[in-house]
């Protein structure tokens, strides 16, 4: 059964008049301005644009993870109707991974090189769920299975450098899915991969969305992805 998308639902993510500024040597300048979007449960929204147009900056702003030099100058980000920008750092930490998660571009650098894949996923589970170390690890293996990682038990015990590029991206996706977030942001999730694996990963994200939608019909996964720009 596919997820039933009800377009009259309240958006799980709503961005209004977002403006992001970067502090350069000669004052600050806007890299994103008047950004408006909303995503309802079960929807996929793609942001397409040339290189440097602010896609990644927007994605990072949605998690309040902008680099030090950048800041949200104005605008509103509502997650599940809650004002994300007005939240305390502790509340934001509770939202990250649990309500809104992100698949980063380059899994080789985005995964910690000295921690095992399973540990990295289990760590996210333990942060948001009350469970033992063992249960969290089991959940990590289960999530790796969900993203069709071959031999998930063994891969969970390996380090990022021991996996192929495609497997690393699957691990990255598993990391984002681990706590069943309502919103998944995928920032050019296939950039570092060859064309065949790119197709597999995009297919996988789509499958995961459907699986997630079936599992919890009230809050299907939403993915705002930004495919590679035809210009940049």
């Amino acid at each position: 059964m596919n997820a039933i998308v009800q377009n009259d639902q309240a958006p799980v993510l709503q961005v209004t008049d977002l403006e992001i500024e970067i502090n350069g040597g000669q004052g600050s300048f806007a890299v994103v301005s008047e950004m408006n979007l909303h995503v309802r449960a079960g929807e996929t929204l793609c942001i397409v644009g040339e290189s440097g147009c602010g896609k990644s900056m927007t994605a990072l702003a949605l998690l309040r993870l902008l680099p030090d030099a950048a800041k949200v100058a104005s605008g509103k980000i509502l997650i599940d109707g809650q004002d994300f920008m007005a939240m305390s750092e502790r509340q934001v930490e509770d939202y990250r991974g649990e309500k809104i998660a992100m698949i980063f571009q380059e899994p080789l650098t985005a995964l910690n090189p000295v921690l095992r894949i399973g540990e990295q996923i289990a760590e996210a589970v333990r942060q948001h769920r009350k469970c033992s170390r063992k249960e969290a690890y089991a959940k990590a293996v289960e999530t790796l299975q969900l993203v069709q990682m071959p031999d998930p038990e063994r891969r969970a015990g390996q380090f990022p450098h021991e996996l192929s590029g495609g497997m690393r991206q699957r691990a990255m996706i598993a990391l984002a899915l681990a706590c069943d977030p309502k919103i998944i942001i995928a920032d050019e999730p296939t950039t570092a991969l060859d064309v065949t694996i790119q197709a597999q990963i995009l297919g996988l994200i789509s499958t995961c969305k459907s699986v997630s939608a079936r599992r919890k019909s009230s809050s299907p996964t939403t993915s705002a992805s930004s495919p590679r720009s035809p210009i940049g």
Partner: peptide
């Protein structure tokens, strides 16, 4: 400044844990 530190924050980990463990 590494990407994996940003990933750790994106998972919702507390700052102390990110600093010490990651």
């Amino acid at each position: 400044r590494e990407d994996f530190v940003r990933t750790a924050y994106a998972k919702g980990l507390r700052k102390g844990r990110v600093v010490v463990r990651h």
